[in-house]
């Protein structure tokens, strides 16, 4: 076939889902409504994981001890995203980051925001690896991860 003759069929697969949260995730989101960030501690390895787990991924033991962690933490790494794609939830540009909250042994994925994000070079002056950030709460709580609106740099 000549190039201009390549033909396609348009197709689409849209399927709605209802994904069960389970107890641990449900409780975590309920705590967010109270503006508390809770992790779970493994009795065997003593690590505190945020987001919390129903079982420790390394020890395979049940995690049943809730621990409140700080609303401030350290930026372990971050990325400036200015790349749109189908189904994207957050409007570009935005900064995604791994934040290790005080008292936690894992990084929480969330946004760093609260300032002008349009210029990456200006963003780099504000968002620092190893820098401290703190949670800013959404006024209206929906029982999901965006009940924390974003994290903002601590001045």
């Amino acid at each position: 076939m000549a190039k201009e003759e390549y033909r396609i069929i348009e197709a689409e697969a849209v399927v709605p889902y209802e994904l069960a949260l389970g107890g641990t995730v449900s409780n975590f989101f309920d705590y967010l409504k109270e503006e508390k960030i809770m992790g779970k501690r493994c009795r065997k390895c003593s690590r505190v994981l945020v987001p919390p787990r129903s079982f420790c991924p390394r020890c395979f033991e049940e995690m049943d001890e809730w621990v409140e962690v700080g609303q401030e933490g350290v930026v372990e790494t971050w990325v400036y995203i200015n790349m749109p794609f189908y189904g994207q939830v957050i409007k570009v540009p935005y900064v995604s980051a791994q934040i290790r909250l005080d008292g936690s042994d894992s990084g929480l994925t969330h946004l760093i925001a609260g300032f002008d994000l349009t210029n990456v070079n200006k963003v780099r002056e504000i968002v620092k690896l190893g820098g401290r950030v703190k949670a800013v709460w959404s006024k209206e709580k929906k029982g999901n991860i965006l009940d924390i609106a974003y994290f903002e740099p601590v001045k």
Binding site: L19, T77, I81, S96, L108, N144, I145
Partner: peptide, 18 residues
């Protein structure tokens, strides 16, 4: 779908953070 997906940006987001 609970914690990470809304902030993810395919491969570039993850690999750049790394």
């Amino acid at each position: 779908p609970y914690f990470q997906r809304v902030f993810a940006a395919g491969a570039p987001g993850t690999f750049t953070m790394q």
